[in-house]
Design a protein around this nucleic acid. Structure first.
Length: 273
DNA sequence: AGCATCACCTGGCTGC
DNA sequence: TGCAGCCAGGTGATGC
């Protein structure tokens, strides 16, 4: 999401929206399509912000266009719309005053666009308040991480991916963070030693920063691409995610895919404790 | 209140 | 080879 935000900053910030087409029936669901279109049309995009996995495009009249890609959403910036065919599952197109388009493609239709005026002093929508601190924006020092995990009896991975606890960590990055910290993802939050919390704090920052430097992770069966349609390259650095059976780079034992509630986690049961 | 599970979807992959 | 069915994962609703 940070890679997408950086792309938005380079391409659509400073542009004015000249028109909006909403063709999908699910992408805009917090308000009517008509309302989104009328709130957005004519507005200039002043800034591209992000909290966790939520994007916020700040508009010139203090409204905000919030976008969440969920599982399969993709934002594409098309500079010459006439030359680029509309991809299947294109649900929203925003036309901009330089002739370019911001297109939203989302096969599974979980993704969402909405425009609100209920913004806080920092310019972000009030609904973002329920999100925990964003490590890339605000850092996550050991004391803060410990405070965020305090009182939780659930498993570490469940808390790390709970956006109210910490914002921005998804399934694959949670696995990578736990591996790097050498802590099992199914450890209880209230059972972590100070040194383990320090390692988790450092690992969170290291994994997220490296992932952004590599412009994200593009998986076999997912469709993450940046605004230009380019794949990320962090998947080549994954130590455990989707690497079941391959030797752990730290201890050589095979990486495991373990059942974990209704989901799965990849980890090294030999060197994560 | 807090934790677990399910629903929402489609496409790619697995296994018969 | 064909195809039915499983699985992927983020969030919000529902259940316990």
């Amino acid at each position: 999401m940070e890679t997408v935000r950086l792309g938005l900053e380079r391409t659509v910030v400073g542009r004015r929206v000249t028109g909006v087409s909403v063709t999908g029936t699910r992408t805009v669901r917090r308000q009517s399509r008509f309302e989104l279109r009328s709130r957005l049309t004519g507005r200039r995009i002043e800034a591209a912000r992000r909290k966790g996995k939520f994007l916020a495009l700040l508009l010139d009249d203090s409204q905000v266009l919030s976008i969440h890609l969920r599982m399969s959403g993709q934002l594409l910036h098309v500079t010459e719309p006439g030359k680029v065919a509309k991809a299947p599952h294109t649900h929203v197109i925003a036309r901009l005053d330089d002739g370019s388009e911001l297109r939203f493609v989302d096969p599974r239709t979980f993704g969402e666009w909405w425009v609100t005026a209920d913004v806080r002093a920092d310019g972000l929508p009030a609904v973002f308040d329920r999100l925990g601190p964003d490590p890339l924006n605000d850092g996550i020092p050991p004391k803060l991480l410990a405070a965020r995990l305090a009182g939780h009896r659930s498993a570490l991975k469940a808390a790390l991916t709970d956006q109210r606890v910490v914002a921005g960590i998804g399934n694959l990055y949670a696995d990578e963070i736990c591996w790097r910290a050498a802590v099992r993802p199914d450890r209880r939050c209230d059972d972590l030693a100070p040194d383990e919390l320090r390692r988790l704090s450092r690992s969170t920052m290291a994994v997220l920063k490296a992932a952004v430097e590599q412009r994200g992770s593009s998986l076999r069966d997912a469709r993450y691409r940046d605004l230009m349609g380019n794949a990320g390259s962090y998947q080549a650095r994954h130590e455990v995610y989707d690497r079941a059976g391959e030797p752990c780079s730290r201890c050589g034992e095979p990486v495991q895919k373990v059942r974990f509630g209704a989901r799965t986690a990849y980890c090294c049961e030999s060197c994560q404790h």
